[in-house]
Lab assay of single mutants.
Amino acid sequence: LGPKYVGLWDFKSRTDEELSFRAGDVFHVARKEEQWWWATLLDEAGGAVAQGYVPHNYLAERE
C-alpha cells in the first residue's frame, strides 16, 4: 500500500468530501492533489475506517 502517514494536528472537516481526524491518527494516502490528499483513515489493526480529503500539511510520513 505504500507509506503510511500520521496526523500532526486535529482537523475538522468543512465539507462532505473532507475527513475529520485527530492528531496521531494513521492514514494511507491514495492520491496527492496539490493542497488536498485523498486518504483512508486506518484503525489500529490497519483496517479502513473512512475516506476523504485531508490537508497535506496536516500529515507527516510515518517512519
Rank of each mutant, 00 (worst) to 15 (best):
P3C: 12
Y58P: 03
L59C: 04
Q51E: 14
E44K: 10
A30S: 15
F11V: 03
L42M: 06
A50V: 07
R31D: 05
V29R: 00
N57H: 12
R14M: 11
R14K: 11
D25V: 05
E34W: 08
G52A: 02
V6S: 03
L19D: 01
E17H: 12
V54R: 02
D43K: 03
L1E: 13
V54H: 02
K32Q: 07
G24R: 02
T15R: 14
F21P: 01
A50M: 08
D43V: 06
V29K: 01
G46T: 04
L59T: 03
L59S: 01
L41R: 05
D10Q: 06
V29L: 02
N57F: 09
H28P: 01
R14G: 11
F27R: 00
Q51T: 14
E18K: 05
G2W: 14
E33I: 06
D25R: 01
E33K: 06
Q51N: 08
A50Q: 08
L19V: 05
L1P: 13
F27Q: 01
P3K: 13
A45F: 14
E33H: 10
G52C: 07
E61A: 10
G24T: 02
E17R: 12
V54W: 04
W36E: 02
F27C: 08
E33P: 02
A30Q: 15
L42R: 00
L59M: 05
W38R: 02
W37Q: 00
V29S: 01
G7A: 15
G7H: 04
E34K: 11
V6M: 06
W37H: 00
L41K: 09
R14V: 10
A30W: 14
A39T: 01
W38M: 06
N57K: 07
G24K: 02
Q35L: 14
A50E: 06
A30I: 15
V54N: 01
V54D: 01
L1T: 12
E61K: 11
H56K: 14
L1F: 13
E18M: 12
A50D: 08
E61H: 07
D25Y: 05
L19N: 00
R22M: 10
H28I: 15
V29Q: 00
A30L: 15
R62G: 11
G24L: 03
V54F: 03
K12Y: 14
E44A: 12
W9Y: 14
H28W: 12
G7Q: 03
R62Y: 15
V29Y: 02
A50Y: 04
W38C: 08
P3W: 08
A30M: 15
H56T: 07
W36A: 07
V26K: 07
N57Q: 08
A48G: 09
R62E: 15
R31F: 13
K4E: 12
L8T: 02
R22T: 09
E34A: 12
E33M: 09
P3E: 08
F11S: 02
A39V: 15
D25M: 06
L19K: 00
W9C: 15
G24A: 02
A23W: 04
D10R: 04
H28L: 15
K4S: 10
W36L: 10
F21M: 03
E61V: 14
A23C: 08
K32G: 04
V49Q: 07
T15C: 15
E63F: 11
Y53Q: 05
A60Q: 13
A39F: 03
K4H: 14
Y5W: 09
G52M: 02
R14P: 06
V54I: 06
F27A: 00
W36N: 06
V54S: 02
R14I: 10
H28G: 03
G7P: 04
V6Q: 04
V26D: 03
V49C: 06
D43T: 05
A60I: 14
E17V: 11
W38K: 00
S13L: 04
F27E: 00
N57I: 08
G2V: 14
R62H: 14
F11N: 04
G46P: 02
S20A: 06
R22F: 11
R31T: 08
L59Q: 02
S20C: 08
Y53L: 07
R22L: 09
F11L: 01
D16S: 12
A50I: 06
Q35Y: 15
E63Y: 12
V26T: 11
Y58H: 05
N57D: 13
A48M: 11
W38L: 08
Y53H: 02
W38Y: 12
D16I: 10
K12R: 10
R31S: 07
K12W: 11
R62L: 15
A23P: 04
F11D: 04
A50C: 05
L8H: 04
G24H: 03
E18G: 10
A48T: 11
E33V: 08
Q51V: 10
A60V: 15
N57A: 08
A45N: 15
W36S: 06
G7D: 04
R22K: 14
E17K: 14
W36R: 15
Y53N: 03
G24C: 08
K4C: 15
V6D: 04
L8S: 04
Q51M: 11
G52H: 02
Y58N: 03
W9I: 10
T40P: 01
L8N: 04
V49K: 09
L19C: 03
P55R: 05
K32W: 04
V54L: 03
W36D: 02
G7S: 14
N57E: 11
G2Y: 14
F11M: 01
Y53G: 01
L8W: 06
W9K: 12
L8V: 08
V6Y: 11
L42A: 01
W36K: 10
Y5E: 00
K32L: 05
E34I: 08
D10V: 06
T40Q: 07
E34V: 09
L59R: 00
A60N: 06
T15V: 09
W38P: 00
E33L: 09
H28E: 13
E17Y: 12
K32M: 09
D43R: 02
E34C: 15
A50G: 09
E33D: 10
D16E: 12
N57T: 09
T15Q: 09
L8I: 11
P3Y: 09
T40I: 15
E33F: 11
T40H: 08
L1W: 13
L8G: 04
R62I: 15
L41H: 01
P55F: 05
E44F: 09
H56S: 15
A23Y: 05
L1N: 12
L19W: 04
E18S: 06
E17L: 14
A48Y: 10
G24M: 02
E63L: 12
E61M: 13
S20Q: 04
A60P: 04
A50S: 09
Y58T: 04
G24D: 03
W38S: 00
E33W: 09
D10Y: 07
G2F: 14
H28A: 10
V26G: 04
A50F: 04
L41G: 00
F27D: 00
G7V: 07
